[in-house]
Design a protein around this nucleic acid. Structure first.
Lengths: 206, 206, 206, 206
DNA sequence: TATGAATGAGATTTCATTCAT
DNA sequence: CATGAATGAAATCTCATTCAT
């Protein structure tokens, strides 16, 4: 989607500019509050304070508190989703254990990039407030995995790629998230070895 | 002004009968409220209402709201933990794919026995409010798995049983929970097949 | 008031015996709570707990919480009053500075005997809850002072003994109480010197 | 769970006018409640009611109930303190019985100006809630007295001015307060005579 | 558009008192 | 008499949201 630069079309109201900037400011403030003060202290007053605006002004940009929090998480989720999907897409052409390992590695990197926010999202937020986004990401990744599988007929144990992808995604998701959050006494290399073993064993079994 | 507040220790209730009954009533009411109205609406007033007692009476049996909710979840968690650990323990002597399949099956049963509460715990509660219990269960299961592995030397790909167990537990945990909660278009038989494939593939790889 | 011992009159109900003992027990408990936990924590539940009885039982012996607290303070006040009046009475026959000094000394001793409770009564309790008793004690002491003055005509500046006594009592009361509670950097001897100077100067002025 | 709560610092109110006015209104309401309903009935709800605002609004101007009550008393205490210190300061240059009499007279006036509130403060409030202010005032007055004494070497019985001032302040404080509150059958003139006698007798004795 | 004071329902918790047993 | 569970009003405080300016 190429951006119109120097468009001759009548520019959107200048307020739009301000709006956009203010929305960003509020989201950033919300993120800050979430990280600094935690989920329970995420109040509209605090967010407004952090954003340096009046509580009333929040309602010019968001219909209610939930929408602000949703936007904050959206922002983060989109970021993670893009990193994760990116990690996968980049390596979709590759093949075999090396591809799995590299992907898993990128996955851990993606989650570790914002551990603090990840922890808040996974541990502090009720999962429900993130369910849709999480499902969407899982779905997206599943489709990429299915594409990968479809491109390599005969190399997998099962031809039910939907199921295979579902299993892989669910298993790997929890593994990486918990690896990043809980920091078990497992080196990164060992962890990657195990992920590779898990995936190849599952996929390739006779 | 503030002196040692000398814990007005909860007097023992000689009428254990009444006490016990009321505690149960409150926990049941809490569970009901949690299921019917959700986590956010879990208020002391509502619980008291549901239990048919006065709000003040709650505090004869629980020190605060958190303790009530904790009791509700504890009750459920203990139940799940016992079922899960039981399922595993019973089959610890068995061996091979059949054992894995039977265990996974029992696991799904254990979680499915109270889907509604499972959903609340997994989706509505902030994970943090349940982390300890969850970790404890994971730890308990991990130890059982390690015992299983230790009893069968030479049949596993790796001798680092701690890591192997960690990986298995994390992977299977999310798989079963999500299978039960999300109800993907995968038959129970197929699901069990996949779990067996995942485990055997991971464990047995040369 | 000689006590009837071995009276032939029908003895009061045995409950009376118990009553008396229980009243004492409750008062002692209340005193304990007041000292240990402070005025704000003086609750019927705590007193009952300390007395080792049920909260309901309190109401067999006292009409309400206020009455319990009043009894606790009464007990203390009577004690102080007796010591103070005693100190004065014993020395009523004496004369001059030595008498004043000895009395003041006994006064300080009387108050210091129970500093902890004195502090609670003076600093924590609303004065109103003690006003009547305090007034009564002041009145009692004033009468003793007036008797003293009346017995020594011609030695005082004024013949309005009521006023003289009022002034003396009010001045000395605060001096001793605050001396005991605040512990200013004034030795006991010096303090007594000053009290003597104050009294003799006031009384004897030409 | 509990993180640094990052004091949501009270934003400055640019509309100082409104703010100030509301603070005044709340203090006035608090004073009214204290006078009309007494210390025990001084509740946030009642104060808000009296102020004609919602209970929540109180917390825009005061952090908690105690702060409201403190403000009410501060207002009064400052007033009394200024009157008392003023009365003393004005006459610090004067000398002898006339000075003492005038000062005592001003003192009584200062306390009598707000008998109702004085009664509440002295009789209803636990002294502890006012100790600091009271001590500060006493200290302030003591220093003025010491200055007075220091300026007139050789006219006092003792050179330990600290002690002398302590004694005088403690004695006079209770005398005036109780004179105003209890209204003993002593005319103002007579009362002043006695205070003069007490002070001159104490100070000048050979 | 922006403000921020005001709202007011509602949450948690305490505790003096009662009354069935 | 004694019990102690039960009460329930009331207290303090929070916070999402509104609306007059």
């Amino acid at each position: 989607m190429a951006r119109r630069e120097h468009s001759l079309a009548p520019r959107k109201h200048p307020q739009q500019q301000r709006s956009r900037a203010m929305v960003e400011r509020i989201i950033a403030a919300g993120r800050e509050v979430l990280l600094r003060d935690g989920y329970d202290a995420f109040s509209t007053n605090r967010v407004a304070d952090q954003a340096g605006i009046s509580p009333g002004s929040l309602y010019q940009y968001f219909p209610n508190k939930a929408a602000i929090m949703a936007a904050v998480i959206d922002r983060y989720s989109d970021d993670v989703a893009d990193r994760v999907a990116g990690a996968l897409t980049e390596r979709l052409g590759d093949v075999g254990p090396a591809m799995i390992r590299a992907t898993a590695n990128a996955l851990v990197d993606a989650l570790a990039a914002n551990v603090d926010l990840l922890r808040v999202v996974i541990e502090d937020l009720p999962a429900a407030s993130n369910l849709d986004r999480r499902r969407a990401l899982e779905q997206r990744v599943r489709e990429l995995v299915m594409a990968y599988l479809a491109a390599r007929p005969g190399t997998t144990r099962s031809t039910d790629h939907a199921t295979t992808a579902w299993v892989l995604v669910m298993a790997i998701e929890n593994l990486t998230v918990r690896y990043v959050l809980d920091g078990p006494a497992i080196s990164r290399e060992l962890f990657l070895d195990e992920v590779v073993a898990l995936c190849t064993g599952y996929l390739a079994i006779a």
